[in-house]
Design a protein around this nucleic acid. Structure first.
Length: 275
DNA sequence: GTCAATGATTTGAT
DNA sequence: ATCAAATCATTGAC
């Protein structure tokens, strides 16, 4: 039968025709892509500026300094706690909570990254698929991907922000000195009161005096400043209430003066000048 | 539980 | 920067 050969001829012609169409289509798509590209460029953001977001950097720095990010978080945390002058009692609790925040952060981050990657891949495949039936340039795909990753970056930023917030709250809850105040030792209070009542007319220790007192009491200079600030205002507010205390330290001082002999012209107790 | 004492912080003035 | 004053948040006695 000649049907077969006829059919073969037809098929060959058909293939040729399709090939031609394909070439034409590709050429047409390319032109369309160029037009699209030009109109897109002219109508909106020509420069694809992507400067490192200052807020992003700020959050990164903060998280790193809080020991959420970074490989040496534990050592850093120890350093922090040592510097804060807190010992062993609430370390565990604080560290556990911080670790919790850290692991949540990393889990979320990984989740986002995976989702981003997955979504990007998906869109990329989709666009490649579609580029066979409508004009989509490689450049356009790339741009779409950039937009997606930027969008996910914003989500990451939010994650970092909320993590920062959580850390700050934890910090204020555990490291705020007000929340774990300890009264000074009896001896420390003794030393401070001694100085205060023997300088009642001018209870303002100099920087050196503060350092000396801090050393003697085993507290910091700012704690000495705090103490004198509090003491002055509270004494002034109610001198009567402190009279007993004043007498006590006056007697103590008198005893000291007697024991050390009569050379203490500057050792006498002043009276508070409240004018 | 209340409540005064007390150390720390905040605010505003100098 | 330092101080007074008001205020906060905990401690410790009751």
């Amino acid at each position: 039968m000649s049907l077969n050969t006829e059919q073969g001829m037809d098929e060959a012609q058909e293939r040729k025709h399709r090939l031609n169409m394909h070439r034409m289509k590709n050429a047409l798509f390319q032109v369309l892509c160029e037009i699209k590209e030009k109109s897109a460029l002219s109508q909106r953001n020509p420069p694809e500026d992507d400067p490192p977001d200052p807020q992003q950097l700020r959050l990164d720095r903060m998280l790193e300094s809080e020991g959420v990010i970074g490989n040496d978080a534990d050592a850093q945390l120890e350093g922090q706690l040592a510097a804060s002058g807190d010992n062993t009692a609430e370390h565990g609790d604080y560290r556990a909570k911080l670790n919790q925040i850290r692991s949540i952060y990393h889990a979320e981050l990984e989740k986002y990254n995976n989702a981003c990657q997955e979504f990007t891949q998906h869109v990329q495949n989709l666009l490649r698929e579609q580029s066979r039936t409508r004009p989509i340039s490689q450049r356009e795909i790339q741009r779409t991907i950039t937009i997606i990753s930027r969008r996910f970056n914003q989500i990451q930023l939010q994650l970092k922000q909320s993590t920062c917030e959580a850390v700050m709250i934890l910090r204020s809850r555990f490291l705020d000195a007000r929340r774990k105040r300890r009264n000074f030792s009896k001896q420390a209070t003794e030393v401070l009161n001694e100085y205060f009542y023997s300088h009642l007319s001018n209870p303002y220790p100099s920087e050196e005096a503060k350092e000396e007192l801090a050393r003697k009491c085993g507290i910091t200079v700012s704690q000495v400043s705090n103490w004198f600030g509090n003491k002055r205002i509270r004494y002034k507010k109610n001198i009567g209430k402190f009279q007993e205390e004043a007498n006590l330290y006056a007697a103590k001082n008198a005893q000291a003066v007697c024991q050390t002999g009569a050379n203490g012209s500057s050792m006498g107790y002043d009276t508070f000048d409240n004018s």
